[in-house]
């Protein structure tokens, strides 16, 4: 194993542990928004897709990369917007009550 891979594994491990710590104890109301919001973050694959499609390569690679960009962008944009829509609903209701 190269030292680059080892370093990457460390990064992965620490991010997982930190992530588990950050998300503990979420009230049930927020389960769906948390899921769709984190789902949008998993659209980070768009960065990888940009690098693949953007770097010079033959046509097939650019096409595959471009499809990946489309998919990941839908994931990102759709995920964040739909989460916002849901949370807006929660907000509206809370102010009404108080």
């Amino acid at each position: 194993m190269s030292s680059t891979l080892i370093a990457a594994l460390f990064v992965f491990l620490l991010a997982t542990l930190a992530g588990a710590e950050v998300i503990n104890k979420v009230p049930p109301t927020l389960h769906t928004p948390l899921m769709s919001g984190s789902n949008a973050i998993s659209g980070i694959a768009v960065i990888g897709a940009l690098l693949v499609a953007g770097n010079p390569g033959d046509n097939l690679i650019t096409i595959l990369g471009s499809i990946a960009i489309v998919l990941a962008t839908i994931n990102v944009v759709g995920g964040f917007l739909v989460t916002d829509r849901m949370l807006q609903m929660f907000k509206k209701k809370e102010t009404k009550v108080s």
């Binding site: 990457a8 997982t16 992530g19 998300i23 503990n24 789902n39 694959a45 990888g48």
Partner: peptide, 29 residues
């Protein structure tokens, strides 16, 4: 985790971190 795995392929930290973050939150849910 899939995004993180793609991050390993490209050796790109932000994919690895964000992917791991989502992987962890999904497991907790």
């Amino acid at each position: 985790i899939a995004a993180a795995a793609a991050g390993f392929v490209l050796m790109n930290n932000i994919l690895i971190i964000a992917g791991a973050l989502v992987g962890a939150s999904g497991i907790i849910l």
